[in-house]
Design a protein around this nucleic acid. Structure first.
Length: 428
DNA sequence: TCCCCTTACACTTTTGAACGGA
DNA sequence: ATCCGTTCAAAAGTGTAAGGGG
């Protein structure tokens, strides 16, 4: 685990002074994360994990399931996951049944983060059972409006988990991020499985694929079929965590020797990346966004959820009409939000964006949108969060600061349900 | 021709409403 | 009126295979 260095006095970070001061008694760096079902992940990783992505969105299998410890029991946290592109290459599966570089990576698609539906929840809530990201979906549709994480096919990615102490989702901007990655969760996004061994593993362990199992092969593996209904809801067990973590490293190293890597060349890029890691996870802490890193965007640019690589693209990736629209007239919108966050290519980025999917009557008037064009730490997330999904209850803007929401008694409703329908994405 | 993507399909699990009994 | 368990149809999640486009 990397040594954690707080970049700023935490007491100046949290928007919730009372809770923040209480939490200061704890070291942020005490947070630990463990990947559940790492054995299953490893069995895929040794072959070269592939995840199917579809236009309508596809779940991961195995899906991410983690446990955390070291949280302040009574403090609120947001837990989320995003996908980091592992390198700047595009791959192809060649005749020798290996992955090889097929060229440079495509331009990065709109960057999105999946927020766990329980967020925000108390530390005790997160620690009492494992945290499942079963419902996270991957898509290759850059115009996706369902909040799925957008990836490029034939590119390599790694899930990245973030723990953020924040009373509300819209406080994330001020919060400290603790980020965790697990080497064995690296995967290649594909539209059709390339490696038949991966297909077989998926069929053997995914209950939905039971119909493709050959007679008699079911149960052959020493790994049980993996259903989310099978997932134990165990209390946190530090001893178990520790032992599994150490076990993992041993086994991964052994696996490197015993298994033929599916990656052409000397080394699996993932192992290369983590070659100096000896712990079961990687952890880094960041303050986001760095205000100085923010680069103002024009209204048009603002609408595009643009990644740095797409700045020159003249197309609105979300297919939105441009121009001003009365929010109250928008029928059944889903809110898409761009989270102040770090991207793989740009460690800190600061734009917050709201938009409404194509097919809606329109989207918030960008010219009058409180967040468009003026990004400061006073900008807020969640100012129209109450009525999701389905409608905006109140434009209620401009809302320059989340504290206004408190003082006005603004009701944010069920944040858990709300976040399920929300989309966080990066805009850099 | 090759590579990759989309789509339709058959099969499975999951979900939730409806119902009946205690 | 409430709770609990069962049933069943619809919805959702799988990998496969054919076909299409660049």
């Amino acid at each position: 685990m990397q040594q954690i260095t707080d970049l700023r006095n935490p007491s100046t970070v949290s928007p919730s002074p009372s809770m923040a001061h209480a939490a200061d008694a704890y070291h942020q760096g005490n947070i630990r994360m463990n990947l559940e079902y790492s054995e299953l992940w490893k069995s895929f990783h040794e072959i070269g994990t592939e995840m199917v992505i579809t236009k309508s969105g596809r779940r991961m299998f195995p899906y991410c399931n983690i446990s955390v410890s070291g949280l302040v029991p009574y403090a609120k946290y947001v837990i989320m996951v995003d996908m980091v592109q592992m390198d700047s290459y595009r791959y192809k599966w060649n005749n020798e049944e290996r992955w090889k570089v097929a060229g440079k990576a495509e331009l990065q698609p709109p960057y999105r983060t999946y927020v766990h539906p329980d967020s925000p929840a108390s530390g005790s809530h997160w620690m009492k059972q494992s945290i499942s990201f079963l419902k996270l979906k991957l898509t290759n549709n850059p115009l996706d409006q369902k909040g799925h994480i957008i990836l490029h096919s034939m590119h390599r990615y790694q899930p990245r988990f973030h723990v953020v102490q924040a009373e509300h989702l819209y406080c994330i901007r001020w919060s400290v991020f603790q980020t965790f990655t697990f080497p064995e969760t690296t995967f290649t996004a594909v539209t059709v499985y390339q490696n038949s061994k991966i297909t077989k593993l998926k069929i053997d362990h995914n209950p939905f694929a039971k119909g493709f199992r050959e007679e008699g092969t079911h149960g052959k593996s020493n790994l049980a079929s993996f259903s989310h209904t099978d997932l134990p809801r165990l209390p946190y067990d530090p001893q178990r965590e520790e032992s599994e973590g150490l076990l993992f490293n041993k086994e991964v190293l052994m696996a490197q020797d015993e298994h033929m890597s599916p990656w052409e060349g000397e080394q699996d890029p993932v192992q290369s990346l983590h070659s100096e890691e000896t712990m079961e996870y990687r952890n880094s802490e960041q303050l986001v966004p760095g205000q100085t890193s923010y680069q103002p965007q024009s209204n048009h640019e603002f609408t595009r959820m643009a990644s740095p690589s797409t700045v020159d693209d003249q197309v609105d990736h979300n297919g939105f009409e441009t121009g001003s629209t009365d929010m109250a007239t928008v029928p059944e919108p889903e809110i898409f939000r761009t989270l102040p966050f770090m991207s793989p290519s740009s460690p800190q980025c600061g734009a917050i964006a709201y938009s409404i999917p194509a097919g809606s009557k329109g989207r918030p008037g960008l010219s009058s949108h409180p967040l468009s064009g003026h990004y400061t730490t006073d900008q807020t997330l969640g100012f129209w969060s109450e009525a999701l999904p389905g409608q905006y209850s109140s434009p209620a803007y401009p809302h320059p600061h989340p504290h206004h929401l408190h003082s006005s008694g603004y009701n944010h409703g069920s944040v858990a349900e709300w976040s399920q329908y929300s989309l966080f994405s990066y805009s850099c």
